[in-house]
Design a protein around this nucleic acid. Structure first.
Lengths: 230, 230
DNA sequence: GCAGATCTAGAGTATGTACTCTAGGATCAA
DNA sequence: TTGATCCTAGAGTACATACTCTAGATCTGC
């Protein structure tokens, strides 16, 4: 593996584990057993590393969040998007953690992230519209779609941060990754009141499998794998 | 005003304006025209200042978020809570910005913030229950209340961060404060489908007054793009 | 007026952090 | 072989940051 890619991989890992703020370029180099000079040969500065990681992240999301405009959506589509989104968030979890600071330090990143946000909001709206056309959600106005999409975005991008702050151990990765998917429950909660009768039973049954158990946050929870075949 | 209080006031201001990460204890002292030694006479360290600000914040929230259990709630109650909550968030906006880092650095804060979160979630549930008993919201289960309260919390505590990342100028305070209350629109969006017919018209009319104008924010980015029309 | 407590100044320190510079090894094409 | 380009090591720098220490000013109660 090329040194450049090794640096990105190690940075991502360390950022995720310890937070961008606590990981210096010297740490990254030391972790890889290379010299700081070598690291700075491949990247102009720390912000450059972070920006490259953002490009990876954006590429990942772009790859799976392609809403088909030529056929009706299914419940499976919807669940695939949700699972993929939360996987991506987990993989690049350092990013939303220190987002505001990162954006103030790098104008290029700020610009691109902003575009990325609106792109994602557009895709979420497309999903909502698709589900409506498929008869899964009851019809409502563009304005409602917009407001709902925004709430979905807020819940999705901040669910992990909530887990970190709300779990007793400060959000050790082990517990957090297990509880991460419970964010799906929260997203489905947003859309539940709009479900058509034809789909209500099925979707609520799926949703039930992701239900968070907040009372368990004190100790270790033993969540079973959700079953999609309902 | 006592030096201790002046330190807290200046810290809050600087943290809010520049982010906790960009404000050092030396900055705070210099801003007040006092010596670092003086600052450290009043506070053991930076985390101590932050913790004191958290106590102020918690006190503020505790003061207004007292849901009366002996009478039915009104729409006015609900709107008062929302306005107050967003005011409080604005006043201590640095806090949720760097929350995760702050919690990892100060165990006492982590513990107390966690308690604070669950306390607030409880009060939100109490509001939902109160509105239901008042016939404003259609009845639904405790479980649904719990999930909804969590979504309300997520939207409320992260709306400001969203504004910062989504606004073209990186969230200058002027624009942000104006748009802040539009978070109320998003919260009301969550509860809208549960409104009873008797209150639907009235609440949606109130909600409409807080509607965010995202097209303005999106327009900002287009303006920066090169104009290809010759 | 005086003793003790409280408060303040400001120089100073230990540590950390992002980043640079130079010199030289590896690789590869001609 | 040679020259050029790519890659790497590692010492080193300039600056920032959280925090300390000492000596003295100011206040308070009597």
């Amino acid at each position: 593996m090329k040194t450049r890619d090794r640096i990105l991989k190690a940075s991502l890992q360390l950022f995720n584990e310890q937070g961008e703020r606590n990981v210096t370029t010297n740490h990254i180099a030391a972790h890889l057993g290379i010299s700081p000079g070598n690291l700075y040969y491949h990247f102009r500065n720390k912000a450059d590393i972070i920006y490259s990681l953002f490009l990876q992240y954006r590429g990942l999301v772009d790859r799976y969040l392609k809403v088909p405009r030529n056929r009706t959506l299914t419940v499976e589509d919807k669940m695939f998007y949700l699972e993929s989104v939360f996987d991506g968030l987990w993989h690049y979890r350092f990013f939303h953690r220190d987002l505001e600071y990162l954006l103030t330090m790098d104008e290029r990143l700020r610009h691109d992230y902003r575009e990325f946000t609106f792109h994602c909001l557009g895709e979420i709206r497309a999903v909502l519209k698709g589900l409506q056309e498929a008869g899964i959600l009851r019809p409502h106005s563009e304005q409602e779609h917009e407001a709902m999409a925004l709430n979905v975005w807020l819940v999705v991008t901040n669910w992990m941060a909530f887990l970190k702050t709300a779990s007793a151990d400060g959000g050790s990765d082990g517990n957090t990754q297990r509880e991460l998917k419970q964010g799906i429950y929260q997203v489905l909660t947003l859309e539940m009141p709009y479900l058509t009768e034809a789909y209500y039973e099925r979707v609520t049954a799926i949703r039930e499998q992701y239900r968070p158990d907040l009372s368990v946050m004190e100790g270790g929870s033993r969540a079973e794998e959700p079953d999609l075949s309902v």
